[in-house]
Simulated scan of single mutants.
Amino acid sequence: MVVGATGQIGRAAVGVLARDGWEVTAVSRAGARDEGWPDDVRAVRADREDDAALAAAVGDGCDVLVDMVAYGPEHARQLTSLGDRVGSAVVVSSVSVYEDDKGRGFDTQQEPGGFPEYPVPITEDQRTVRPADTSYSTRKAGLERELLAAGGRLPTTLLRAGAIHGPHCRTPRELYFVKRNLDRRPRRVLAHGGTSRFHPASVHNIAELIRLAAARPGTRVLNAVDPDAPTVAEIARAIDAVMGVESESVLVEGPPPAPTVGDTPWSVPLPVVCDMSAAERELGYRPVVRYAETLPDTVAWIEGRLAGRDWREAYPKMFASYGDLFDYAAEDAFLDTVDA
């Protein structure tokens, strides 16, 4: 059973599991289907916030429950309450639970000197933030703690995903460069010298981890990222190549020169790069795609969503999360100072 089946990871995971021989029940609030799924996938309508509805969807039980949208300790308790009817679980978490050795994490990054200095690469042994109800990161940490403590009742593989990318994403970071190319912007400003690295995670690689974990139940935490962690400048060039354009990257050493200039969704002053050795060792995992290989589908999806629409209408959650990513007037004013 896949909960959150019509989200960007869920769509890929349902297809992979069904093609691997599982009888898959795809649970979503709308009970919809993806056109790429095999015909024998069973679609069920249920809101996971409704305990009774989720329990009814589980019915007499399932061998594996895959949860894309679990968030916070209450969802962990919801899952463990079904432990007598569920063989094991695979639950998506986030690399945002990590903190550095000085207690800095994603929640402190906007503070002066607050960006975490993680080891490169980050292993699953890195310390994590304390569970609380204060943020996305602390609630994901609470989810993890509850599920790991209940491993005897419900063996659970937790997958700490990086910067997720692929079609159907509501906050695609690639939009930053795709829209600039569509708007025929010849130059883009990149802070931190264009060297920022925020480890991406393809929905296809995450789906492969889910497939392997479903067949090997256990209580464990694993990173879930791509085999490569390109710099933001490399990502920009790769998107250019897919779209058949040539653009110039204007590199700025240090932080963005203005609030809406050079601050891409990947822009970080220090690298966030994760290690995948544990997944290779415990699951026999091997990545199925590399970042650049996935870009044609991602770019095509973004272009289709943007066609004839304001980007804020096409991607309202992106606007809510990142603000104005396309303040061309501010960019041009900065570029005028560069050219002076």
Score class of each variant (00 low, 15 high):
Val3Thr: 06
Leu17Lys: 01
Arg19Asp: 06
Arg19Phe: 03
Val24His: 00
Ala26Thr: 10
Gly31Val: 11
Ala32Asp: 15
Gly36Met: 00
Trp37Gly: 01
Arg45Cys: 09
Arg45Val: 07
Arg48Lys: 10
Asp51Met: 05
Ala52Asn: 01
Ala52Cys: 00
Leu54Arg: 08
Ala57Asn: 05
Val58Trp: 02
Gly61Ile: 10
Asp63Trp: 01
Val66Trp: 03
Glu74Ile: 06
Glu74Gln: 14
Arg77Pro: 10
Arg77Glu: 15
Leu82Tyr: 05
Gly83Thr: 13
Gly83Lys: 15
Val86Asn: 07
Val91Glu: 00
Val92Asn: 04
Asp101Gly: 11
Gly103Cys: 04
Gln110Val: 14
Pro119Met: 02
Val120Ala: 06
Thr123Leu: 06
Thr123Gln: 03
Glu124Cys: 07
Asp125Trp: 08
Gln126Glu: 12
Pro131Tyr: 08
Ala132Val: 02
Tyr136Asn: 10
Ser137Gln: 12
Thr138His: 10
Arg139Val: 05
Ala141Val: 00
Gly142Leu: 02
Leu143His: 03
Arg153Lys: 14
Thr157Lys: 12
Ala161Trp: 03
Gly162Phe: 14
Pro167Ala: 02
Thr171Gly: 00
Arg173Ser: 13
Leu175Asp: 08
Tyr176Cys: 05
Lys179Ala: 14
Arg180Asn: 10
Asp183Ser: 14
Arg188Pro: 06
Arg188Trp: 07
Leu190Lys: 04
His192Val: 14
His192Lys: 09
Gly194Val: 01
Gly194Pro: 00
Thr195Gly: 11
Arg197Glu: 02
His199Ile: 07
Ala201Gln: 10
Ser202Gln: 08
His204Ser: 10
His204Trp: 11
Ala207Val: 06
Glu208Lys: 12
Arg211Gln: 06
Ala214Leu: 07
Arg216Ile: 03
Val221Phe: 08
Ala224Leu: 11
Asp226Trp: 12
Asp226His: 12
Pro227Ala: 02
Pro230Thr: 09
Thr231Phe: 08
Ile235Thr: 11
Glu248Phe: 02
Glu253His: 11
Pro256Thr: 12
Asp263Lys: 15
Ser267Trp: 03
Pro269Tyr: 12
Pro269Arg: 02
Pro269Val: 13
Leu270Asn: 09
Met276Glu: 12
Ala279Asn: 01
Arg281Cys: 08
Glu282Gln: 14
Glu282Trp: 04
Gly284Trp: 02
Tyr291Ile: 05
Ala292Trp: 06
Gly304Pro: 04
Arg309Cys: 01
Ala314Pro: 00
Lys317Val: 12
Met318Ser: 13
Phe319Thr: 13
Ala320Gln: 13
Ala320Phe: 05
Tyr322Gln: 08
Asp327Pro: 09
Tyr328Asn: 11
Glu331Phe: 00
Phe334Tyr: 15
Asp339Lys: 15
Asp339Gly: 13
